[in-house]
């Protein structure tokens, strides 16, 4: 059975750097919802978001060697996503000229204001940052427990992470404390 590293997530980035395809799929599972969340807040369609994602993933694959700190991963992905979105809208502006009257007549389907979206995204980034500070094993454990839509059983999680079922509960508690502490420090810094 494949041993899951207990060291920092930097290991996962290192594995990606060495061309480990499985590591890339773990990393992209984490990154993609973040990219799509930024696209969604920018009112992009599904196809447009997928288009942006393709550019971001390509740039990430090409640039991962330059990422020394796992903490800079989110900032890097966020920056290239926003840059690609900006370039996308620039291209549209060059080709389409939409009458302001038409724009005003389109009903706003979004209940939240741009400010609310920004706060939400900022909080999300904070949680992702906190998760990135975890070890690879802890990161995968929390991801499978709370963010896997397939809701895997404890037995399946234990098998995948090569750990006894009985240790999932205590480790999960410790991870939540760690995430809480990380967010508390971040909140104080504001």
């Amino acid at each position: 059975m494949k041993k899951i590293s207990k060291k920092s997530l930097a290991d996962l980035i290192e594995k990606c750097n060495n061309g480990d395809e499985a590591a890339w799929h773990i990393l992209i599972d984490f990154i993609a919802p973040y990219v799509f969340a930024i696209c969604s807040k920018s009112r992009m369609t599904r196809d447009e978001s997928f288009d942006i994602f393709g550019q971001v993933s390509l740039q990430l694959i090409k640039s991962i060697k330059r990422l020394k700190e796992p903490g800079s991963l989110l900032a890097f992905v966020g920056t290239i996503t926003r840059r690609e979105i900006y370039a996308f809208f620039q291209k549209i502006m060059m080709t389409d000229s939409i009458d302001e009257e038409i724009v005003n007549s389109v009903p706003d389907l979004y209940s939240k204001s741009p400010e609310d979206d920004f706060v939400l995204l900022e909080k999300r980034e904070m949680l992702m940052e906190a998760m990135l500070s975890l070890s690879e094993r802890d990161f995968l454990l929390i991801k499978m427990l709370y963010f896997d839509p397939g809701e895997p059983s404890y037995k399946a999680i234990a098998k995948k992470l090569n750990m006894p079922v009985s240790s999932i509960g205590p480790i999960r508690g410790k991870i939540l404390v760690r995430l809480y502490k990380y967010l508390k420090i971040k909140n104080k810094g504001k």
Binding site: P33, L120, K123, R124, M126, L127, A130, Y146, F147, L176, L179, Y180, L183, N187
Partner: peptide, 9 residues
């Protein structure tokens, strides 16, 4: 924040 963001995500 921890709970809301986790559930939202």
């Amino acid at each position: 924040t921890l709970i809301e963001m986790s559930l939202d995500w």
